[in-house]
């Protein structure tokens, strides 16, 4: 069975007047890199929360349907039960750093789950090495930049050894350079075999690495497929999702009757296609 399976899942926050998620059907398999995108308020964060049981366990509300994560129904287990399966990274790094230094922060999750101290220490060292955090080891959250904080927040989540990394707009508070670094780490993790669910608006930065793009609008999934399939669909423009410039040019050329061999997602790909075409 799939790692994550939404089965006709609907959800309404307690006190809200419309559904945040409407009849979601979605399966995510091992090793995928799924980018979720859509206009503000369409339910992306809610979808992420549903993957580790925060919805409906932490946020009370009305539910219909089921979400199965690693074959377990999120209705029937505590959030903590999913901590070691689906790791969530949130938008604001400041609110995810709850201890006074980086080592403690990384150790926080596994300690909570009662992992043996020797193993906790091993994970801390491994992750500090992996995410290049050596120089931050003893720093207080206040002594770090936003990008560094977000990297530490991600490290703290990875310390739980999750099978899926769910990142909800992890780059939205960062400058372009730090954002790129975070996205680079995410794609490296995916290449090492980790399943990734990433909410991101700037599709030009992630479309190339992603294996799949899911487009949401007003609580529904309105498109789901490979990046090229979804990005050339007209629905993107209809709901106002920004597609990569290269893909847009491709579409315009297409409309004028000029067909390129394949759909470009980046400027380089486009340049290459045009070179091929003119040679």
């Amino acid at each position: 069975m799939a790692l994550v399976k939404f089965d006709d899942f609907s959800y309404k926050y307690y006190g809200a007047d419309s559904l945040a998620l409407k009849k979601i059907n979605l399966t995510i398999d091992n090793g995928e890199y799924v980018v979720i995108t859509g206009p503000s308020g369409c339910g992306k964060t809610t979808l992420c929360r549903a993957i580790n049981g925060l919805v409906p366990r932490f946020h009370r509300g009305y539910i219909a349907g089921h979400v199965y994560v690693d074959e377990k129904d999120t209705r029937e287990h505590e959030v903590a039960h999913f901590a070691a399966i689906a790791g969530l990274v949130f938008q604001n790094p400041e609110n995810q750093l709850v201890t006074l230094n980086v080592e403690k922060e990384i150790a926080f999750g596994p300690e909570n789950l009662g992992v043996n101290p020797v193993e906790v220490r091993r994970r801390v060292e491994e992750i500090i090495d992996l995410l290049d955090l050596e120089h931050l080891r003893d720093k207080h959250p206040h002594e770090m930049s936003g990008g560094e904080q977000q990297r530490v927040a991600m490290a703290a989540t990875l310390a739980l050894n999750p099978q899926i990394l769910v990142a909800d707009e992890p780059t939205s508070n960062l400058d372009p350079k730090s954002a790129e670094k975070i996205l680079e780490i995410i794609s490296t993790l995916n290449k090492r075999g980790m399943t990734v669910v990433l909410v991101e608006h700037r599709l030009d930065l992630v479309a190339k690495e992603a294996t799949r793009v899911v487009l949401m609008d007003r609580g529904r999934i309105v498109a789901d497929g490979t990046p090229t399939e979804v990005l050339v669909a007209d629905i993107c423009q209809d709901i106002g999702v920004g597609i990569p410039k290269a893909t847009e040019i491709y579409k315009r050329l297409n409309a004028k009757g000029l067909r390129l061999g394949s759909v470009p997602l980046t400027g380089e790909e486009l340049a290459l296609l045009i070179q091929e075409g003119t040679v």
């Binding site: 580790n52 959030v79 903590a80 070691a84 596994p110 009662g114 989540t157 739980l160």
Partner: peptide, 17 residues
């Protein structure tokens, strides 16, 4: 929300690095 996602208070036998 972030603490809950990282298992805060989950285990009776919390360990310390």
């Amino acid at each position: 929300e972030s603490m809950e996602s990282r298992g805060f208070g989950a285990s009776e036998n919390r360990t310390y690095m």
